[in-house]
């Protein structure tokens, strides 16, 4: 099977503004993106970064304010039908469906929306139920499914038309570790079973993006900050030294280390304002080089803080994010007060 020559997903100068009061919200601010056919592509960013808006535009649910977006060459604004025939979407926390229906019945209904014959629909539904591991729940009412089972059913729905582009919007949101793992395995198995299948995954789970995606775009405030393979992205901060310190009695927070010679950034693993119950905080330090560590240790000592553990770490995608954005991933990006307390550059 030869892969198509056009990009699976292509956006140019994509911008989306929501007309809200008191002021409009710029959800996407000039996104340029190209995803190749057969690629597993991730959009990584905190809540409110614009990931879901981008997915909504690509799945024809939302029009761009300006710019263009294409799926396998089809324009999202004009060629919606063509796009809907070749893609599907599964979102995390999806609660849609009819509670009174059984799993099989709910899926069969959707199979009809994709033009499958009556019998063909039932057959495909049964196969997919087996494939996603919902055998025991096939005749269970949708309203009685657990969150994990429900998400598996959503996946079965999303695969009914065997999409060429599969959009996954935070697919493991709200799932426990085991359910999230089985969802990831399912996605990978489906993707690997046939070349040419494209997946666009949005997530704010770093590990998930790193585990699944061939390429990742880090987004924040509607802009793409960096694109590359996980290794390429991590290489961005590779030239700097990264340390994780567990520190007791760090009363002045990470901000106290700002401005020390050689400190690129210093942030706490939490929001910096509420120390762990035992008083020990984890500090993420990005330094120009290893020698700058001496100054940090001295400074901590003079502040009365005690270093419980010190570890030089390989850069993670979070480090890349911190490097690019200047704040931690879980911190409010809207310029809250917590921002300055937690991160200092």
């Amino acid at each position: 099977m030869s892969l198509p020559s056009v990009p699976a997903i292509e956006t140019r100068g994509l911008r989306r503004v929501y007309k809200t009061k008191p002021k409009p919200i710029v959800a996407l601010d000039g996104i340029d993106l190209e995803v190749a056919p057969g690629e597993f592509f991730g959009l990584l960013g905190p809540n409110g970064a614009g990931k879901t808006t981008l997915i909504k535009i690509l799945t024809t649910l939302l029009l761009p304010t300006t710019g263009t977006a294409r799926v396998f060459g089809f324009d999202v604004a004009r060629e919606t039908r063509q796009i809907r025939r070749l893609m599907n979407i599964v979102a995390g926390g999806e609660q849609s469906g009819y509670g009174l229906l059984q799993v099989r019945e709910q899926l069969w209904m959707f199979s009809q929306f994709y033009g499958l014959g009556t019998r063909e629909g039932w057959q495909r539904v049964d196969e997919l139920i087996e494939a996603v591991g919902l055998d025991e729940q096939r005749n269970q009412k949708v309203s009685s499914l657990s969150t994990g089972q429900r998400q598996k059913m959503n996946f079965a729905r999303g695969l009914l038309n065997d999409p060429w582009v599969f959009f996954l919007d935070e697919p493991t949101l709200g799932l426990d570790v085991s359910a999230a793992r089985s969802v990831r395995e399912l996605v990978r198995t489906w993707k690997d079973a046939l070349p040419g299948r494209t997946i666009l995954l949005t997530t704010h789970y770093m590990a998930e993006a790193e585990e699944l995606c061939e390429r990742i775009a880090i987004v924040d405030h509607g802009r793409i900050l960096a694109i590359g393979t996980p290794d390429e992205l991590k290489h961005r901060v590779q030239s700097e030294s990264i340390f994780r310190l567990e520190v007791d009695r760090l009363e002045r927070g990470a901000g106290a280390l700002a401005g020390l010679p050689g400190v690129v950034s210093a942030s706490t693993a939490t929001d910096g304002t509420t120390p762990a119950p035992d008083g020990v905080q984890t500090l993420n330090l990005i330094l120009d080089n290893d020698t700058a560590l001496g100054g940090v240790v001295t400074a901590l000592g003079s502040m009365g803080a005690q270093i419980v553990a010190l570890r030089k770490s390989e850069p993670s995608l979070e480090d890349v994010f911190v490097e690019l954005v200047g704040r931690g991933f879980d911190e409010d990006g809207a310029g809250s007060n917590g921002h300055h307390e937690a991160v200092a550059r």
Partner: peptide, 10 residues
């Protein structure tokens, strides 16, 4: 019967 938080749309 667990009806307190059921959703039953058809």
């Amino acid at each position: 019967r667990g009806l307190i938080d059921q959703t039953t749309g058809t």
